[in-house]
Structure formats: structure tokens, C-alpha cells
Write a protein that binds this DNA or RNA. Sequence first.
DNA 1: ATCCGGTTCC
DNA 2: GGAACGGGAT
Length: 301
Amino acid sequence: MSEPTFATLVSRWYEENARDLPWRKPDTTAWAILVSEVMLQQTPVVRVLPAWEAWLARWPVPAALAADTPAEAIRMWGRLGYPRRAVRLRDCAVAIVERHGGEVPEKLDQLLALPGVGTYTARAVAAFAFGQRHPVVDTNVRRVVCRAIAGEPDAGPATRPADLVATEELLPAEPAAAALASAAFMELGAVVCTARSPRCPACPVERVCAWRASGQVAPAGPTRRPQRYAGTDRQVRGLLLAVLREATGPVPHQRLDQVWTDDVQRARALAGLVTDGLVEPVGEESFRLTGDGPAVPLPHP
DNA sequence: ATCCGGTTCC
DNA sequence: GGAACGGGAT
């Protein structure tokens, strides 16, 4: 008898302790899983839950979202943050309809080619929606593997090819078991092997963890430089978008001028929203969410 | 390497 | 007030 593998230990723990998240139910469609993964980029689970339910109730298949306007996607996105994701997700739905007949593609390279789908999301969908054997590496998994296997405090700011390799080597050979293990690694990083206060006594691999064995050395420097929000263009974009989201049609620029006093910064933020496809000008004086109304304004009577 | 939200906790 | 949160695009 050999010792259980790392993946087996974590997978057993996962089956006993996994959070009951709706996108993990067996009959969840690939589209619903893709939507969950995009929403979960940078965003805590508790905030995604209601938005995910509402989004799929309205657009249960990619073709439904593709037929609607970017403006409606931006409105449904609500306050999830990084609203470019809403526009990209709609672009993604359009691409799925045009390239794949409305079905979420199964091949990794086809997924990677979709708007808003990067190396993490493509692998997550391939594994969790289609049961394929791929390493799925977000920062949680990267941290788990760096610590438990390499005994290092943490990885850098981005996922490196070596992180993919190190994670792949941990996966069971059988695809379904590999997908389960990937979900289990993510869960472990999210709720036990956390960045700042790991709950090692609750960890299923505490006995074999190289990082634990080496005294849990702290990262050398600051892992990430702090990200401010107050006073940045991002805050101004948020304020502008809030006004446009509430409006039903074009908003005169005089109303947008009121959300921020610095003319230069406000103009830069608005131009950025236009560049990103979130907002479009209407005539000389007004702006609206992209596609929020007729393409050509009706002439005055 | 930098930009891109918004909420929650300290 | 300020930090934590962390994937994709450029």
C-alpha cells in the first residue's frame, strides 16, 4: 500500500468540506460555468452569487446575451466592479454564436481565443465544464503549490509557466479525478491556505506541507504594491457610469460634469469609457451606455 | 508593467 | 482613511 497522493488528500477533504456553490451543481451548463468564472475574476463569491443567478435567468444561453445590447449587459452587471468584463462577456457570447454555433467550445485554444477569457478562465472552463485534465492555476492554487510542494512562501504577481507545470504534475491521470483535484486545490487556497492567515490545523496536507515543515517563511518583500482607489480615474469612471446606468437614454454632458470637479480628469475618464466600449457619444452634447437606444437618433420633428 | 471597481474589514 | 481582494488586456 502506498501513501495517498497530495491530490487524493486534498480531494477527499474537498468532498467533505466544499462550499455549496450553485455553479458546482452537476447539471450546470458550460455557459453558466463560464459566466461564473468571469464574474469571479477579482470578485468575492458572496457578491457574485446573486449577480450570477440574475444574469443566467435573463440570458440562459450565449445567443440570448449576444442578441441584447452592451448597455443591458452593463446594467445587469450592477456593482460587481470592472464593468469592462460585462462588455467582454457579451463580446464573448457573440463570438460563441459566430464561431461555434452558440455552444461554448471545448478545446482549450478555442476558449483562449474568446474575449475576456485568459489562461486561467480557459482552463477552468475546460476542466469544470468539460471534465478535461488541465492544470487550473489562479493565485490561490499558485500559493498552495508554492507552499506545500516547493516550500516557498508565494509566487510573484503573475502565474508562470513553471506554476502550470508544477500543478500539472500533481493531477491524477484520470480526467474527472484531475478536474476534481483542481477544484479542490482552489477551495483549499480560498478557505484554508489563505494568503495572510493560513488555517494550517484545518489543512488536509499539513503533514506533508514543505512550507509548514520549513517554518512558514514569510515572503521576502511586499507581494503586491497597494492599489489605491479614492481619487483615481477608476473612481471617476465608476461615478460617470453610475449616472449613465440609471438613465434610460442619452445623458447631457452637463449632468456628467457634476460628478467630478476636475475637468481634465473627468474628460480623461469619460474618454476611457468610450475607448473601452462602455459608453458612446450621442450627437455633440450627450453620452449613453453603448447601444442604449437607436443607432441613429431620430431627427427632430 | 499598468490599468481596470467596488465592498468589506481594519 | 486605508488596505485586501486578484485575472485579463495592452
